[in-house]
Simulated scan of single mutants.
Amino acid sequence: MTSSTPWQQRLSTGTEDVQDEVIGWYQQTRHGKAYVPNMIWGTLQTEAYATVILRRVVEFLGVPDDVPAGVAKRMERQQVLYDGEHRYDVVLGEQALYTNVGGGPVMRDQLERLLREMNLPSLSLGILPATAECAIVPVPGFNMGEDRAHYELVSCGVDITDAAELALHRRAFDALSGAAHYGDSATRLIDKALAFWSNA
């Protein structure tokens, strides 16, 4: 089954309620997967990076401005990385390290956080190089729990719950993670991007 809800409906009271929903989903999801090609995964965002992202959402969609409350909830959600009860397999596209969110200082702090957190026991963080050959056609980013896959499109959020479709998403994630770099190789890609932002 596939369902979608327009963002302007979901965000009719601002960003905080949706972020609160996401906290609930993450707390229920013991083993999550995320492929994020163009930006940093929300659960690894710094407060400054998340503030820029949610500010853009509010201004683009014209929804109520509660950005500080939404950011606070996004920071709260990150506790799943430290509670010892959850695990996340995350693949970032190399472009995510270069997409300009807030300028040099914000990007430097964000990449430094990736370097600090990438060895957490709860996290497997891969970087998919821009030139990597991958056994799947290019796909948009998605998040997966045990029971659904979630996409964030321009106008709406989409949830997929059909078992056969979820199996295809797992295959897609396996292909993406199989082409990604981990450990020291991932660190080198992040260091390269950090050097770029240090000179920007």
Rank of each mutant, 00 (worst) to 15 (best):
L54R: 04
R55S: 15
R55T: 15
R56D: 15
R56V: 09
R56E: 15
R56F: 03
R56Q: 15
V57M: 12
V57S: 10
V58S: 11
E59Q: 15
F60M: 09
L61Q: 11
L61G: 03
L61R: 14
P64Q: 08
D65T: 04
D66P: 04
P68M: 06
A69P: 01
A69R: 11
G70A: 03
G70H: 02
V71G: 06
K73R: 14
K73M: 14
R74C: 12
M75T: 08
Q79T: 07
L81T: 00
L81M: 13
Y82N: 10
D83M: 12
D83R: 13
D83G: 08
G84E: 01
G84S: 04
G84A: 05
E85V: 02
H86S: 10
D89R: 14
V90C: 07
G93V: 03
Y98D: 09
T99H: 13
T99K: 02
N100E: 15
V101L: 11
G102K: 00
G103N: 11
G103A: 08
G104W: 00
P105S: 10
V106L: 09
V106W: 06
V106F: 13
V106Y: 03
V106D: 12
Q110H: 07
Q110I: 05
L111A: 13
L111T: 08
E112R: 13
R113M: 09
L114A: 06
L114K: 00
L115C: 08
L115I: 08
R116N: 10
R116G: 11
E117G: 02
E117S: 01
M118Y: 14
N119V: 05
L120F: 06
P121Y: 04
S122Y: 11
L123Q: 08
L123S: 10
L123V: 06
L123W: 05
S124G: 04
S124R: 14
S124C: 12
I127G: 03
L128H: 02
L128E: 08
A130W: 10
A130K: 04
A130S: 11
T131V: 13
A132W: 02
E133C: 07
E133L: 09
E133A: 11
E133S: 11
C134D: 03
A135R: 14
V137P: 03
V137M: 02
V139G: 04
P140H: 03
P140F: 01
G141Q: 01
F142S: 02
F142L: 11
F142W: 11
M144N: 09
M144H: 12
M144D: 06
M144K: 07
G145S: 15
G145L: 05
D147E: 15
E152Y: 06
E152V: 09
L153A: 05
C156V: 10
G157I: 01
V158N: 00
D159A: 07
D159E: 09
I160N: 04
T161R: 13
D162A: 15
A164V: 14
E165C: 01
L166S: 08
A167F: 06
L168R: 14
R170G: 08
R170A: 12
R170K: 13
R171A: 09
R171T: 15
R171E: 15
A172N: 00
F173M: 01
F173I: 02
A175S: 15
L176V: 11
L176Y: 00
S177Q: 12
S177L: 04
G178H: 01
G178F: 06
A179V: 11
A180K: 02
Y182D: 00
Y182G: 06
D184P: 07
S185H: 10
A186T: 03
R188G: 01
L189R: 10
L189W: 08
I190L: 01
I190K: 04
